[in-house]
Write a protein that binds this DNA or RNA. Structure first.
Lengths: 225, 225
DNA sequence: TCAAAAGTGTTAATAGTACACCCATGA
DNA sequence: TCATGGGTGTACTATTAACACTTTTGA
């Protein structure tokens, strides 16, 4: 193997996952109560080291799967965090990702095994490393992206009511939305389809369930270009 | 030093800079014609390796300075690029940054020494590595950011005419802008200040020079929150 | 019968877009 | 005097924001 680079140092490279979920209508993040070093006793994001022959994106997917059992999850890179002293153990350069998951579907046993819990974003405990920065940037990015794309629906079940969807957006944006204006907007989204199913769990009357149609969505996006 | 991590592999970590500038009114990128391995003979972005006791951000600033002599430049991280085979030499994980510079101010000797040239973004040559992906993402990010923030002004001299500013935004967005609408909008930006100076180089009549007032800008931003 | 969520239109305000002519100057 | 870029206002359109009542149902 030719080595053009061997005068340069090498570093551990890790990934950290900001896993968003909706719990009782509240935006939450899966955090680990660390029972291992470093920063033992503190809370932290789920992370892991990039391995040989593994891309950084693949490492993020692997780490997410290790904790939740989930694959094919919506993930996006937040960015690289590379301060020299960001890890008190040794120098590690970390790449943060956020994931949007439906909390009905993850593997609870795995989460328990890792000593992880859902924590409301408004009630963050003291976190180790530079994880508060990562979370802040992930939330900003997510808020921005969800305002332009329907990716927020990844936080809901496949079938959802308009009230759930509105509440989701209110939670993400952190401010109330007018019901009629919201429903008008959704009516203009041809990729949000009304089904014949009715959810009776949220009200006596029952509400129509809707679903996201990704073919319709890609069609629509083509037109916009 | 405690080593919690030593079962994990380490990697070279590099930074790559997408350096944007305006040349004859055209958005351009500073590219190197590589006279060294790997990918010798191909064009590439300016890059360099992260060093011990150097943050990733600091490495990006250093690399930018090595090529242009400039400090205190507007830079933003594009993201980490971590495919296993992205570098044909050895495995390198790279973090891309974009920078916006005023082409009147960089050090031409350094640029020449590195065998670098300004290349119009619409006329990209064949590039090595995953640099085309980096550039694409940088342009998307930059376009988006400049549509919300006045960071694009970093590409202009400190004093600029409204025609220059309009032309800048037309170049970034890739479409013409109505002159009166543009000037109306700028008039609403209290942080774009008219000076008493007149630029006669662009027309016989002469045009007022404007400047960006960063104090006024931070004030304004406070109100928006 | 009533509490609780579901559903439904209109109007006003704001922001954005389209459009054409006169001005000042130096060569 | 004329070619060149500098500078200006108004009407139309689209988007967004504000706002309140009726419906359905199970307990």
């Amino acid at each position: 193997m030719p080595t053009y680079y061997n005068i340069n140092p090498q570093f551990y490279v890790s990934v950290d996952c900001i896993i968003f979920g909706l719990n009782q209508g509240e935006l939450s993040i899966l955090l680990l109560k660390r029972n291992f070093e470093p920063e033992k006793g503190k809370w932290s994001l789920m992370g892991g080291f990039v391995q040989e022959n593994e891309s950084v994106n693949a490492a993020a997917k692997r780490v997410l799967k290790e904790l939740t059992g989930l694959e094919n999850v919506y993930m996006e890179q937040v960015g690289a965090f590379g301060e020299v002293e960001r890890d008190p153990g040794e120098r590690v350069i970390s790449v943060a990702y956020y994931a949007l998951i439906n909390v009905d579907e993850y593997d609870r046993k795995l989460v328990e095994k890792h000593n992880a819990q859902w924590i409301n974003v408004h009630d963050m405990p003291e976190l180790g490393f530079d994880h508060p920065d990562m979370i802040e940037r992930a939330r900003d990015l997510m808020r921005q992206k969800t305002s332009l794309n329907p990716i927020g629906l990844n936080l809901l079940p496949k079938l959802f009511t308009l009230t759930q969807m509105q509440s989701l957006y209110e939670t993400i944006q952190g401010e109330p939305i007018d019901k009629r204006n919201f429903r008008k907007k959704v009516a203009d989204m041809n990729y949000i389809e009304k089904t014949d199913f009715i959810d009776k769990s949220g009200s006596r009357r029952g509400a129509y369930l809707y679903k996201f149609n990704d073919k319709a969505y890609s069609q629509e996006s083509k037109f916009k270009l």
